[in-house]
Nucleic acid binder design. Structure first.
Lengths: 154, 154
DNA sequence: GCAGAATAGTTTGATATCAAACCATCATGG
DNA sequence: CCATGATGGTTTGATATCAAACTATTCTGC
């Protein structure tokens, strides 16, 4: 076995102060809580909001398009869509040209729900950006975009 | 009801390109996968690595100290500690002075495991930082730290 | 054409996460 | 003191997530 690295105070500080994975998980938890509570009255989570936005933005995406866009496992997309579909917020149809693929789109009920969610999102998001130092929101997004494209699910 | 905001292309782009919650969840998934795979050979997840580091860094923390440090729900901490404790990676003892509190510390087995994990973490993390534009890692950490302190669990 | 590889999705099993309800212990004001 | 509220943790139930194994369809080289 290679010489053990003693996990002393310096090493702990090195990880705690620098680890982007840790910092990102922590921020993700805090933000998820915040937006989940924000949307709770509408009966959706931050993830469902994002997924519906993605469906709307990509335009009749396949499940894999969503997985890619959200950096999410395909199985997770399947499960999430099943829930949204059960609530009639999205509809899922076979692709015309490829028997394996499914195309997802918002229902009018889904669009209506999103329309109600957007103003809440705007207010909350503006609030968050206001709390960030000057210029940071864009830097933050840039950094996040970089580390997001590191690895795709399987 | 307030006038409905139509969820048109512009709105979708507004959310997609700016939402820090979405960007953070996405990055968190990507990074979690990356580090989970990195540590898989050692039998730990990125979250367990972070939690053990936190235990080591804070110094005999209570569960609530961990919840605070990790921006994590107390119930989640309980569950995570139970698992680590079951594998003898941490030990949990009653606080001397407060019968409600529990104090967590690493076992020697836990320290040994961390010592093996750190070199892997260093290599992977250096790789990630190298992929980021100049100066960005620190900006990214700053931003993440800000949005992490927004809201505590209940 | 067709056999085998590749691709799109689903299912299953394990873990992580939060909220809400709960239990045990401590602290405080009468 | 002791009743009441506050605090630290745990349990339970719901959802999210990934990996691995699986099914169904399409593509490719022969």
């Amino acid at each position: 076995m290679a010489k053990a690295i003693p996990v002393d105070k310096a090493v702990v500080r090195e990880v705690r102060d620098n680890c982007l994975c840790f910092a990102t998980q922590k921020a993700a938890r805090a933000l998820a809580r915040r937006f989940d509570r924000l949307f709770a009255g509408l009966g959706i989570t931050n993830g469902q909001y994002s997924m519906m936005m993605a469906v709307s933005g990509i335009g009749a995406p396949k499940a894999l398009d969503l997985a890619d866009f959200l950096a999410m496992d395909q199985a997770t997309v399947t499960a999430a869509l099943k829930k949204l579909s059960g609530r009639k917020l999205v509809s899922i149809r076979k692709d015309k040209d490829d028997g394996r693929a499914r195309r997802v789109s918002l229902t009018s009920k889904g669009r209506a729900l999103l329309a109600r969610a957007v103003p809440l999102w705007r207010a909350a998001h503006a609030e968050i950006e206001r709390e960030l130092p000057q210029g940071d929101p864009e830097m933050l997004r840039r950094g996040l975009r970089h580390v997001s494209s590191e690895l795709r699910p399987r």
